[in-house]
Structures are given as structure tokens and as C-alpha cells.
């Protein structure tokens, strides 16, 4: 409920056509990783705080807020088998109706899985809270 904190690196984002699906996410992660590799920039270190309210992304070094993604805007999360240190989620843009896939590089495969399972648990708690609120 208080939020779990993970230190990762931001790989980037791409637009996607569907809110969920393994093939969609896998292709999106491939595109993001290819773009990230092609760019000479160092990946930004970010801190993810995962709670039933959503995911708060801050810059690890400056602590500046990058984005506060409401749980109601997140449709999907995954740790892909081919890019196994990558955690990704799909969310509706805060500005319009478009769907975005955001990907993050974790230090280990286990961390990518832990972030994904934590977000999944946040989904479940958010559903419980939503049902209580009805």
C-alpha cells in the first residue's frame, strides 16, 4: 500500500495499437531496445515507486518527478522472455487517447520479474479497493 521502490534505467517508449497482449508488448519492447541501442545517450537512472495508486517515476539522481501514472491509466505490465532484464508497462497517454509502452532496464532478470509481479499485485489491490468503493 505504501509503495515498493525499484531503481532501474529508462530505455524509452513507443506508441502501441492495443492496450494488452504478449505479441504487441514483445514487438514494442524490441523497438524500444533497438532505438535505445542506436542512441549514444546514457540511460537515465529512474526510481519507480509502485503502489495501488499507480507508478511514480522520479529521476534517481535529482529526485525530480518524471511522471505519476495513475493505476487507472495502466492496462498491462510484462517481463519479456527475450529481453529478460526489461520491465515494461502499457498506459494511456496523460494528454490524449494514445497508448504508450514504456520500458525499463533492470540490473537482473529477477528484478524485472519482481517489478512485474509487484505491479500485478498493485492491480489486484486496486481492484479490491475499487470494489469496496462501489
Amino acid at each position: 500500500l505504501e509503495g515498493m521502490v525499484f531503481n532501474v534505467k529508462y530505455l524509452g517508449m513507443t506508441l502501441v495499437g492495443q492496450p494488452k497482449g504478449e505479441d504487441m508488448a514483445s514487438a514494442a519492447i524490441r523497438r524500444i531496445v533497438a532505438m535505445a541501442r542506436a542512441s549514444a545517450k546514457k540511460f537515465r537512472k529512474v526510481t519507480l515507486t509502485v503502489s495501488p495508486k499507480g507508478i511514480i517515476i522520479t529521476d534517481t539522481e535529482t529526485t525530480d518527478l518524471i511522471e505519476n501514472v495513475s493505476i487507472y491509466r495502466i492496462s498491462y505490465c510484462t517481463a519479456d522472455k527475450t529481453q529478460d532484464k526489461v520491465f515494461a508497462y502499457v498506459s494511456q497517454s496523460q494528454f490524449n487517447e494514445t497508448l504508450e509502452c514504456h520500458a525499463f532496464l533492470c540490473q537482473k532478470k529477477k528484478i524485472a520479474q519482481a517489478v512485474t509481479l509487484t505491479v500485478a499485485q498493485a492491480f489486484k489491490v486496486a481492484l479490491d479497493l475499487w470494489e469496496i468503493a462501489q
Binding site: 492496450p19 494488452k20 487507472y72 492496462s75 498491462y76 510484462t78 494511456q92 512485474t116 505491479v119 492491480f123
Partner: peptide, 18 residues
């Protein structure tokens, strides 16, 4: 060997006003 793990969000696009 690992499989992809992935989860759909059951509260996606729900709001507390529903």
C-alpha cells in the same frame, strides 16, 4: 529458460465515479 510474465490490469479505465 524463462517464460514471459504478463498481467492485464482489471481496473484499467475504471474510475471511482462509475
Amino acid at each position: 529458460n524463462t517464460n514471459t510474465i504478463h498481467f492485464d490490469n482489471p481496473v484499467y479505465q475504471k474510475t471511482t465515479e462509475d
